[in-house]
């Protein structure tokens, strides 16, 4: 038996919004540690990894590890039936083929129960190595979203150059070129507005904006985003979900032939 309850459906609605354009089907792995999901996009260019830790739930019961195969579109549609303030309970039997989603209004006067058919999915799991990165940039998530969106008007790729104290995002295309320079904040009252740039060694890498724009669908989950970059390895774009976990995206770089 698996059953968990979150005080606000909003966070799970936002999590589904962050995933559904990138992946069509996925498996939620349920264990005593919480819920987790890992999936590549269909082109095998990027990977998304989600962790929602047990401690962030109101209640969490998992008698036995289970895998819930879901169609992301369907789950997102059903999640949309919840109001942001509703509390939400997810429930499934150990060998069941249904996931129950129960939404309860804050005043307890309305309870909605939806049952979603689960899928038997065989999704390849990749080992994500723990590693140190040459550069880590933290910046307001809305600012990163804006940069990716704006540069998409110019080209298909963004070149990210990180040096001490700042980062350049640049794009080239048939209509012209663009360069956006973001400087590390010197003094910030509100942590969410801060830009921090940690540089062990300067890096310069190119990534497809199409995928970065998919990743920025996670913007409503967190005021800040972190970008971890090292030469010739996937970029990590991470959004922390306060008190609950994170959504991390990994994007393979574009490299000279």
């Amino acid at each position: 038996m698996f059953e968990c309850r979150l005080p606000k459906a909003e966070v799970l609605k936002k999590t589904m919004d962050a995933l559904k354009d990138l992946i069509k089907e996925a498996v939620w792995d349920v264990s005593a540690q919480g819920l987790s999901l890992q999936s590549m996009d269909s082109s095998h260019v990027s990977l998304v990894q989600v962790t929602l830790r047990t401690e962030g739930f109101d209640t969490f019961r998992c008698d036995k590890n289970i895998a819930l195969g879901v169609n992301m579109d369907t789950m997102q549609k059903l999640m949309k039936c919840a109001s942001n303030d509703d509390n939400i309970t997810l429930k499934s039997e150990d060998n069941g083929d249904l996931l129950s989603l129960i939404f309860e209004s804050p005043n307890g006067e309305k309870t909605s129960e939806y049952e979603m058919k689960l899928m038997d999915l065989d999704i390849e799991q990749l080992g994500i190595p723990d590693q140190e990165y040459s550069c880590t940039i933290k910046m307001p998530s809305g600012e990163f979203q804006r940069i990716c969106r704006d540069l998409s008007n110019i080209g298909e790729s963004v070149n990210i150059t990180v040096v001490k104290g700042g980062v350049d995002f640049s794009a080239k295309g048939d209509i012209g070129n663009a360069k956006i320079h973001v400087t590390e904040s010197s003094n910030v009252d509100n942590e969410k507005d801060a830009v921090t740039v940690e540089v062990n060694e300067p890096v310069n890498l190119t990534f497809a904006l199409r995928y970065l724009n998919f990743f920025t669908k996670a913007t409503p989950l967190s005021g800040q985003v972190s970008l971890s970059i090292s030469p010739d390895v996937p970029l990590v774009v991470a959004y922390e979900i306060e008190d609950l976990g994170h959504v991390k995206y990994f994007l393979a770089p574009k490299i000279e032939n």
Binding site: L47, F250, N257
Partner: peptide, 14 residues
């Protein structure tokens, strides 16, 4: 011209 690498070039299947 830069070529898009696959994520599978970096992470192994488990």
């Amino acid at each position: 011209e830069k070529k898009q690498k696959s994520i599978l070039s970096f992470f192994n299947k488990t």
